[in-house]
Design a binder for these strands. Structure first.
Length: 480
DNA sequence: TTTTGAGTTGTTCGA
DNA sequence: GTCGAACAACTCAAA
């Protein structure tokens, strides 16, 4: 009989297209998940992500149990528990999907060493990305620093390999050890602020598949334009499923290619490109995080170390609570609080206000998103906040500052989105919805709105805030 | 090595 | 109301 192996689930909570699972399933296996908050330091999953993780583990556990290999749950330091468990069951190999977070890379390195010292092996599979960042570089051999050449070069390598099948039967250990009950991982919030999440999300592989089916049946056709309209369901909503690995990026890639068939055509001219390029932005974020492990903490452009941020807790708090007095920003932050997710267009507008008009450090915004997003992903969150702040990886002109009124009027013209999440403004006519402080008194009266009481006046004068941001950027001067 | 073309997502002003 | 230009120079990637 072959030696059993250990299958360590981390952020690949699926059975479909899971190379680590397929490798482990060649013989008897013990699937294990370890909740290891200590190793992650400040980047342990945030509150919303823990809610998701709880439900995703429940789904994965059920799927594994149905196939004969129940999921073994542990809590504690993986670098002790995993080698110990491998030894206890006599596993020669530990299979897992590769992680890209700096803390996780460091931990995997130590675990691989500990296992090797004992004659065992940690085998990591490519599973969370289309292309290993370590094996993809520009012509110069250096990592890419600009999205467009990165995306073009990646597309030029062709479609990724086809997804692997889902195993129907697994050989569990004859006498699997008793793990923790899911509830004892304590992932759900004490005070049930996440009660509303369940109306929006179905964590787990089946939920991911259902979301994909719905997306391909409708929104994909108009994705290029509709993805920017937060009032309609024009996006895929797959981000949390991708983050937790409930669907692999290459499965998604192939599903979208099959839904918009154009044999032989791949690249900016293909119909699938508007969506695929979003998937490639995710990929680019992983590329950046891999090559710049300080991405979550420090500006990629070193000169930004001198940027005159002006931290002010009251401003940050008003932004977090959706009380800035700028309707589309407040709608976004309230959507985030209620659903654990925020529309991508609104993320940019809200983030821009925080770092530019309000001059709050991007790290503060990133930390809030980390705690409140069900799709919080260290690569995407860090890269995106740096991009908005202007210290990230692109040559965006510094004067590109979003005006939340114009953005609201452009992308939420009828005000459907603002009305949904800022009900106190719901009765305002569209003409004034994105600028209530300019509405005539009679209009406010008719809408039953008392500015400053029912809804705040703007926390910042937009023209002044813009000028302040430009002045702050000007202090950086030109690099040597 | 040097050169060249190009770069996610915008706003404001004035004709 | 609509349109084009200005905003200012930097950095990257590839030829």
């Amino acid at each position: 009989m072959t030696a059993p192996s250990l299958l360590w689930f981390r952020q690949d909570l699926r059975l479909a297209d899971n190379p680590a699972l397929m490798a482990a399933a060649a013989g008897p296996l013990l699937p294990v998940f370890v909740l290891d908050d200590q190793a992650a330091g400040g980047w342990a999953p945030g509150g919303a992500a823990r809610w998701w993780l709880h439900h995703s583990l429940a789904a994965l556990g059920a799927a594994l149990a149905a196939r004969g290999a129940p999921l073994f749950l542990l809590r504690g330091r993986a670098e002790i528990l995993i080698p110990g468990l491998a030894q206890a069951i006599g596993a020669k190999e530990v299979f897992a999907s590769r992680l890209y977070e700096p803390w996780a890379r460091e931990r995997d390195r130590r675990i691989a060493e500990a296992l090797a010292a004992d004659g065992r092996q940690l085998r990591l599979a490519t599973s969370a990305v289309l292309m290993e960042p370590a094996r993809f570089a520009a012509g110069s051999g250096k990592p890419y620093a600009v999205y467009t050449p990165f995306a073009r070069a990646l597309a030029a390598t062709g479609d990724p390999p086809s997804p692997l099948p889902t195993p129907t039967v697994l050989a569990g250990l004859p006498q699997p050890p008793d793990g923790l009950a899911l509830a004892t991982l304590d992932l759900l919030p004490r005070r049930d602020w996440a009660a509303g999440f369940a109306a929006h999300w179905q964590p787990g592989e089946a939920g991911a598949a259902a979301r994909l089916t719905g997306f391909l049946a409708g929104p994909i056709a108009a994705y290029g334009a509709a993805r920017n309209t937060p009032g309609v369901a024009g996006t895929s909503g797959l981000s949390p499923h991708l983050h937790w690995g409930e669907m692999s990026p290459r499965s998604l890639w192939h599903a979208v290619r099959a839904a918009l068939p154009q044999p032989g055509v791949l690249g900016p001219q293909s119909r699938a490109w508007p969506f695929l390029s979003e998937l490639l932005w995710r990929e680019f974020s992983y590329h950046l995080l891999w090559h710049h492990p300080s991405l979550p903490d420090a500006p990629l452009r070193p000169r930004f170390a001198e940027f005159p941020w002006a931290p002010k807790p009251a401003l940050l708090r008003a932004w977090q609570r959706g009380r800035t007095g700028l309707p589309i920003v407040d709608a976004g932050l309230r959507e985030l609080w209620q659903t654990g997710w925020m529309h991508n267009r609104v993320r940019m507008i809200a983030a821009s206000l925080l770092v530019k008009h309000l001059l709050q450090p991007w790290q503060d915004g990133a930390a809030w998103f980390w705690d409140t997003l069900v799709d919080a992903d260290l690569a995407a969150n860090s890269a995106s906040w740096q991009w908005v702040a202007g210290c990230g990886s692109d040559a965006a002109p510094y004067f590109r500052i979003f005006n939340p009124v114009l953005q609201g009027e452009k992308f939420d013209p009828a005000g459907d989105y603002v009305r949904r999440y800022v009900p106190e403004l719901a009765r305002l006519p569209a003409k004034w919805l994105h600028r209530p402080w300019e509405a005539p008194a009679a209009v406010l009266d008719a809408a039953g709105l008392r500015l400053g009481l029912d809804y705040p006046r703007p926390i910042v004068d937009l023209a002044e805030g813009r000028a302040r941001a430009l002045a702050a950027f000007a202090t950086l001067g030109t690099p040597a």
